[in-house]
Amino acid sequence: MIKPWEQVFLDPAGEPWVEFVSARSTANIFHHSAWTNLIAECYDYRPFVVAVQDGDGAVRAGIPMMETGSRLRGRHWTSLPFTDHCAPLHDSAVSSGRLTDSLVVLSDDSNTPPMGLRCNLPPRAAIQTYSHHVLHTVQLAQDSDGVFRRFQPMHRRNVRTSEKKGVRIEWGRGHEDLDAFYRLHLETRRRQGVPIQPRRFFDLLGSNLIDKGLGFVLLAYKDEQCLAAAVFLHWQRTLTYKFGASAADGLSLRPNNLLFWTAIRWGCENGYDVFDMGRTDLANTGLRAFKSGWGADEVPLTYSHLPPRTEGSAVGHLMPAVNAVISHSPLWVCRATGELLYKYVE
């Protein structure tokens, strides 16, 4: 006999969790088993779901997790690595509270590693919360012209400027389109001085999500030159901007403005309610202003730790030196650094 509000571990691809997630309109692509499987397969992490069930065995709340581990950081449970946010899903305030309580009980177990959750859990003494980022979301509507009118005048002008200067948008859902994005993404990451994701990540992104109709690539061209590209994922009511790249010598043509408008218009025309523009560091005021200019709501992005964390990542202290090396090195250094270190930088 199942006890009411019993805490259980579930398979993210198993029927009980898949059915529960599919029935939640607040779920987004990061709750989908295809995203979980992508991260797990690429980085060799162990995926699972912490859930609570009622007396009939029905899932009432849950949160996807990964067990990660390295010699540098030890074992951790994260929800989810390389993911901007992943809030618990629940069918009521009561089930949300029960799930939170079960996470607290788990964290007290000596066999449970530290937990880092990309969400703001209900307050408990054992939970530490912090916010170093913000999240921008645009509310979509069937009337895409009305959404366009909410943009700041500069963004509207830049969209029209890009169109007048002959920038065209190509839709991509094939692996050759991901290849084109990856090449530009590699150049962008080298310019920024940060490691790129392993090449295998984008191969799995194609097979796990884009091939299954859960995402697409937009590429902005002027004649034969690819000026900018972006990867968008979508599920339930949310269209999510996940990755972007651009050529430094093409920014005057405003290709990113046309890319974003094309994605937003598609979201409106296809019944999506929210355009998730992803997280931004609090200190990055320029990017925050760019995203807000699309009529986006900016809210603090709060994360939680169980038990409270007292020290940062050892890898994090090395990143300034890594950034300097990458930005002054050939492209292969950026790629090799990502292959070796990327799984440790989160």
Results as ranks from 00 to 15, higher is better:
Arg60Lys: 14
Ala61Thr: 12
Gly62Asn: 04
Ile63Ser: 00
Ile63Lys: 00
Met65His: 06
Met65Glu: 01
Met66Gly: 04
Glu67Leu: 08
Thr68Met: 10
Thr68Ala: 09
Arg71Asn: 13
Leu72Thr: 09
Arg73Glu: 15
Arg73Ala: 14
Arg73Ser: 15
Gly74Val: 08
Arg75Trp: 11
Arg75Glu: 08
Thr78Cys: 08
Ser79Glu: 02
Leu80Met: 02
Phe82Leu: 02
Asp84Ile: 00
His85Asn: 07
Cys86Glu: 05
Ala87Glu: 13
Leu89His: 07
His90Asn: 10
Asp91Arg: 03
Ser92Tyr: 06
Ser95Gln: 06
Ser95Gly: 11
Ser96Gln: 15
Ser96Asp: 13
Ser96Lys: 15
Gly97Ser: 13
Leu99Ile: 02
Leu99Thr: 10
Leu99Asp: 04
Thr100Ala: 15
Thr100Ile: 11
Asp101Ile: 01
Asp101Leu: 11
Ser102Glu: 08
Ser102Val: 05
Ser102Arg: 09
Ser102Met: 05
Leu103Ser: 12
Val104Tyr: 10
Val105Thr: 14
Leu106Asp: 02
Ser107Asp: 09
Asp108Pro: 01
Ser110Met: 06
Asn111Met: 06
Thr112Ile: 14
Thr112Gly: 00
Pro113Leu: 07
Pro113His: 05
Pro113Ile: 11
Pro114Cys: 08
Met115Gly: 04
Met115Pro: 02
Gly116Asp: 13
Arg118Gly: 02
Cys119Pro: 00
Cys119Trp: 04
Asn120Met: 13
Leu121Glu: 07
Pro122Gly: 10
Pro123Lys: 13
Pro123His: 12
Pro123Tyr: 10
Pro123Thr: 09
Arg124His: 15
Ala125Arg: 15
Ala125Phe: 01
Ala126Cys: 10
Gln128Leu: 08
Thr129Ala: 03
Thr129Ser: 13
Tyr130Pro: 00
His132Phe: 12
His133Thr: 12
His133Ser: 09
Leu135Ile: 11
Leu135Glu: 02
His136Leu: 07
Thr137Lys: 05
Gln139Met: 12
Leu140Val: 01
Leu140Ile: 00
